[in-house]
Computed example of a mutant assay.
Amino acid sequence: MPKITLSLLLILLLKVAPAFAQDSLFVAFNTDKKNTLWNDFTYDMGNVVGGVGFAYSRPLHWQGDDFLRFGGVAAGTTGLFLLDDEIRKALVSHKDDVPPLLLDFGYYSGAPQNNYGITGAVYLTGLFTKNEKLRRTGVLMIASATAAGVVQQISKSLVGRARPGAGFGNHHFKPFGGSSSYRSFPSGHAVLTFTTTYSIAKQFDNKWIKGGIIGVGLIPGLTRIYEEAHWASDVALSWAMSAFIVEAIDKYLDRKYEQKYNPDLAAKESNFEWNLTFSGDQIGVVLQF
């Protein structure tokens, strides 16, 4: 009996051991995968926080060209500020010619829940597919929207500029006014949509594709002028601020990730500039990227 029992135990062990080993390897593999996913996620979220802080600290490190760009943005914003009321009247006078679809797109695309839905989807796709390039893009979008979003919320209350629809004119300010009527600067819709589209546009080298994506990002800001929710100077400065933040965070992420969208763009610097132009009875904003 002992010999028979021992033989049976040996047979049982020979049968069970391989299966047990496979199960152990399977569990170990899943655990490693889970840990890797978690490590990637925590690393990325750390870079979101680090990127936001880096963007806020950049003005302390500005040099000659940076101050020239700042001066150009300040001059352009001042020019628009002086013409805000004329621009508002010109746009509102033909609002009926604007397709309602564009107005709806401008409103809903700038809503925070919709914007973060897009940025979150891009990031999670990169995270779960283990695509570092897509992860980096998602981190850039989330960090940029967060940094710009915090600035625009504080600025709205601090500046207290009256909205066009309030009827007080473009020179009326009430800092810490609290009321929605005094939250014209900057435009939250313009900030969020432009940080998102500008971040996406950086993934492409083709200027037509890049320009098309950025063009889509301009629509929400323009529609807010038509809706008399913001002045032209509010929107234009929101675009410039968003581009500055995206560029700053992108430079920070260069140190953190090996993959940077298209390989041919790795060595290129992307600078966003805009200038106010006059021609006869027309006024325009020229974007350079």
Rank of each mutant, 00 (worst) to 15 (best):
D250I: 07
E247P: 00
A229T: 02
Y226V: 14
G211V: 10
G215Q: 04
I245D: 02
S238M: 12
G212D: 08
D205C: 03
E228F: 03
F244E: 04
G215I: 12
S233M: 08
D234A: 06
G212L: 14
E269V: 05
E269C: 03
A240I: 03
S233Q: 07
K210F: 08
V216M: 13
G211R: 05
E227C: 04
W274G: 00
D250K: 05
I214N: 13
L265M: 09
Q259I: 08
N262W: 02
K256A: 09
I225A: 06
K268N: 11
A266T: 12
S238L: 07
E227L: 10
V216E: 02
A232P: 02
N262Y: 11
I249Y: 11
K210Q: 15
S270R: 10
I249Q: 08
S242W: 03
D264S: 15
G212E: 07
L218M: 11
F204R: 06
S242L: 12
I209C: 10
I214T: 14
L253A: 08
F272M: 15
P263M: 05
L265S: 01
A243G: 10
S233W: 00
A240F: 15
A266W: 09
A243V: 12
L218N: 05
E269D: 06
E273L: 11
K210N: 15
L237H: 05
V216W: 05
D264G: 04
I214V: 15
N271T: 10
V246Q: 08
M241F: 03
V246I: 13
A248R: 09
Q259L: 14
E269M: 01
Y252C: 00
E273A: 08
R224F: 10
E247I: 08
I225V: 12
G217K: 06
L265C: 01
E269W: 03
I249F: 11
L222F: 06
L265G: 08
S242I: 04
L237F: 15
